[in-house]
Nucleic acid binder design. Structure first.
Length: 289
DNA sequence: CCCCTCACCTGATCGC
DNA sequence: TGCGATCAGGTGAGGG
């Protein structure tokens, strides 16, 4: 469930079970889900077994759970198809790659299933390091290069506008660059560009400051609305920690809407091949400038 | 340093 | 029923 709203739904959903919980057992069913862990699975298990967890945190699409009284965190990324499912002990899900048994503070034992069809996601134990802009705040070392996301209170808008104005690439590429602004993926990029009436290939450095401002507000607006609606689910693949779908798919204006009328002008939305994936847009509302 | 392409993976679905 | 092609919400290494 991979863009910022979906990851935030997972973070919120995990929070009650995970904060203060201790890890009673860990089973790595597929070691490929530890690709980003620097060491063998035994090392992962050894370092996390018996640990006490704290409240989960997020930056962009990256999630982590700091381990109490340590300088490390259990970090996880959902990739394209990752899920965190909280189940009664003994309840399994298809495609579970890592399984943990937690003793929670107020809900007794809970099983955490890390499910991932394509295995682009992963779990790892990672050192926490101070952030460059707020040294009192720490993030996993593997997240340090990721820009703050636009829902982060410390997101620096002026820095974002300044860096965007120097990008000699298409605006959609820039939106997807997690070192410039994090949390945006293919769905929300298309939605924000539709809202801001921008063509995906318009060079980022040609956007006026005013236009860039409209675009950033569009990103924030679409994130907020998607979050309210529990994220975007197209099928059973994308669900919250209880296995429930989000409803934002009903609110999409451009993504996946090819051949349907543009909600603004009524002309058909088109889908174009772009960067080995696809872009959805209204060619009338979002002309190449 | 900046920008771009490609590799990494599996399973669901569709057309023949 | 079977088979191949196509598709999917992301990231980072490495080359130009």
């Amino acid at each position: 469930m991979p863009e910022l709203p979906e990851v935030e739904v997972v973070r919120l959903g995990m929070s009650r079970a995970v904060a203060g919980a201790s890890i009673e057992s860990v089973e790595v069913l597929d070691a490929r889900s530890l690709r980003r862990h620097p060491g063998p699975s035994e090392d992962f298990v050894h370092r996390i077994l018996g640990a006490r967890l704290t409240a989960p945190e997020r930056r962009g699409k990256f999630l982590w759970v700091p381990i109490a009284d340590s300088d490390e965190a259990l970090s996880l990324h959902l990739g394209m198809s990752g899920q965190v499912l909280l189940r009664e002990p003994g309840v399994d899900d298809a495609l579970t790659r890592i399984r943990m048994l937690l003793t929670t503070v107020s809900d007794g034992p809970v099983q955490l299933n890390f499910v991932d069809q394509r295995i682009f996601g992963s779990m790892a134990i990672d050192a926490l390091v101070p952030t460059a802009d707020r040294p009192a705040e720490r993030v996993p070392a593997s997240v340090a290069h990721i820009a703050r996301d636009p829902l982060d209170e410390a997101f620096d808008e002026r820095l974002f506008f300044a860096r965007l104005a120097r990008k000699r690439t298409g605006i959609k590429r820039a939106l997807l660059d997690q070192t410039l602004i994090s949390g945006i993926g293919n769905i929300y990029a298309d939605e924000a560009l539709w809202l801001a009436r921008l063509h995906y290939d318009q060079p980022a450095d040609t956007l006026s400051r005013r236009r860039a401002g409209i675009l950033l507000r569009a990103v924030q607006g679409v994130f907020a609305k998607a979050l309210e609606e529990g994220g975007t689910s197209f099928d059973a693949q994308y669900v919250n920690v209880n296995g429930e779908s989000g409803y934002f798919a009903h609110s999409l204006n451009a993504y996946g809407q090819q051949a349907r009328p543009c909600p603004r002008c009524g002309r058909p939305i088109v889908r174009e091949r772009w960067m080995n994936r696809s872009s959805h847009l209204c060619p009338h509302c979002q002309p190449r400038q």
